[in-house]
Simulated scan of single mutants.
Amino acid sequence: MKIQITLLLIGCAASAVFAAPQAQGEAGASIVSQESNIEPDGSYNYNYETSNGIKGEETGTLKKATSPDTSDVIIARGSVSYTSPEGNLITLNYAADDENGFQPQGDHLPTPPPIPPAIQKALDYLLSLPPAKRR
């Protein structure tokens, strides 16, 4: 009796696994292409694409740090793209370095509202003053 129950449970578990439909999207995605290259000087590049349309690429170069307290740094540039659940192509381009940090760019990123003209005029006036009078 115990063997029959055990076999029944194994059969149910196996049927649930094998009968489950393949998930669309991230869970069922596979890698379509992938390349990477690392050079002896520390520079690199890679790119990939998945079956659900996600693509990415990055190039990095090693740079001597400007500060003596910091070791060498990597300057990276790349992009990632995917299709949103609403069907829109989302592309994020970016650059990253030790001087400016991470700098993302993309049409989907929020932007600040425009500065009202009166405020901009006041800011321009303050910038026109000598540094000692700005305080």
Rank of each mutant, 00 (worst) to 15 (best):
G56E: 13
T111L: 12
T91Q: 15
N45V: 00
G53Y: 03
E49I: 11
N93F: 11
G101L: 12
Q105C: 03
I54W: 00
S51G: 02
D69Q: 12
G53S: 04
N52F: 03
G87M: 04
P113F: 10
D98I: 12
D69W: 10
G60N: 08
T66E: 07
T59G: 14
T59I: 08
P117N: 13
T61I: 01
F102I: 12
D97T: 07
S81D: 08
Q105I: 07
H108Y: 00
H108E: 01
I119S: 10
I75L: 05
I90E: 06
Q105H: 07
N93A: 14
G78F: 00
Q120P: 07
P110K: 13
Q120E: 13
D69A: 12
P117K: 11
G60V: 08
Q120G: 11
Q120S: 14
V73K: 11
T83G: 09
E99D: 09
K55D: 06
E58G: 03
K55Y: 08
N45C: 01
P116G: 04
L62E: 06
P85V: 06
D107Q: 05
N45T: 00
L62G: 05
N93G: 14
S81R: 07
V80H: 00
S81I: 08
S84C: 08
P117H: 13
A65T: 10
E86C: 04
P113R: 09
P85S: 11
P104Q: 15
T61L: 00
D107C: 01
S67H: 07
G101C: 10
E86F: 10
G56M: 06
D97R: 08
P114A: 15
I75N: 04
I74T: 07
A96I: 14
N88M: 12
E57L: 12
P113L: 15
D72Q: 15
Y82V: 06
Y48D: 08
N88I: 13
